[in-house]
């Protein structure tokens, strides 16, 4: 935590309970992120939310009573008892990204189980949005599956993909079919770096076919936070630079905190 806590200090909290992890962000009156935490969403969202907040305020020595408003978002947005309001993750990712880059933009959020494309105009107003079809293609779940097939930890993927020198392609829409393609590549003795790059390319293709990019490309979510090389590939495919939002994994929670601050005004 940065800065001194003074008596007049007020905080706003956002919590994003996603399909796989819950992210919490606390901002101050200047809308600066002062504390953040992440944990597994688990099976009891209310309990997860409470635990994350209790532990974070304790760790960062934040007086909980100074958190004047809280907003929830994500799949578990209806299950946070202390939230004063809720917004969808589409609104929150838009809010968070626009805070950092105040221009016309397309936000691509790749989450554990879904991907979203959000178009904002130059004032931050949303023109349009799209969620992926209900399928793991082009999401974190796909990458996790491939890591599992290759007996790798997901944290190793980014570096491996960067080292690849040969493009291999996985053609199928379907995660299970793509995983079978991976098995075929292993059998054929293809280098693991190339297979991982192929898996990244598959995510890129699924994202590119979802929608167009208009204005600046901003990427959010845990998948690009942990795999910046994937963001780079997505940018290349769209022919524009991909800007990874600061604290990309917390961007939804940050946006929720901004909504909380806005409501408090």
């Amino acid at each position: 935590m940065t800065g001194e806590q003074t008596d007049t200090m007020q905080y706003y909290c956002g919590i994003d309970i996603g399909a796989s992890s819950a992210k919490l962000a606390i901002i101050d009156s200047d809308h600066q992120l002062v504390a953040k935490a992440i944990g597994r969403s688990g099976i009891d969202y209310a309990k997860t939310a409470e635990q994350l907040l209790t532990e974070l305020v304790e760790k960062e020595s934040i007086d909980r009573s100074k958190i004047v408003k809280s907003f929830s978002t994500g799949y578990g947005r209806d299950n946070v008892p202390w939230a004063d309001g809720k917004m969808t993750e589409i609104a929150c990712h838009g809010k968070g990204a626009f805070f950092h880059f105040k221009e016309r933009m397309t936000i691509i959020d790749i989450g554990a189980q879904d991907s979203k494309v959000i178009h904002l105009n130059e004032t931050g107003k949303r023109d349009n949005f799209k969620m992926n079809r209900k399928c793991a293609a082009g999401t974190g779940a796909f990458i996790e599956e491939i890591a599992y097939r290759l007996a790798l930890d997901v944290s190793e993927l980014n570096a491996l993909a960067e080292k690849s020198t040969n493009e291999v392609s996985l053609g199928s829409f379907c995660t299970v079919f793509a995983a079978t393609e991976v098995l075929a590549k292993i059998r054929a003795g293809v280098d693991v770096t190339d297979i991982v790059r192929g898996a990244f390319n598959s995510v890129v293709k699924r994202i590119v076919e979802m929608d167009r990019v208009e204005g600046m490309l901003v990427m959010t979510g845990g998948v690009v936070a942990n795999n910046p090389f994937l963001a780079k590939l997505i940018g290349l495919a769209f022919g524009t630079e991909a800007h990874i939002a600061p604290n990309a994994q917390y961007n939804g929670a940050f946006g929720a905190a901004l909504f909380a601050a806005e409501q408090a005004r």
Partner: peptide, 20 residues
């Protein structure tokens, strides 16, 4: 049909209408 995706899509759409 995905219940969760549909709910979120609808909620997000109405949020968008409320901005107009």
């Amino acid at each position: 049909y995905s219940e969760e995706q549909t709910r979120t899509n609808i909620e997000a759409f109405v949020e968008q209408l409320s901005q107009s």
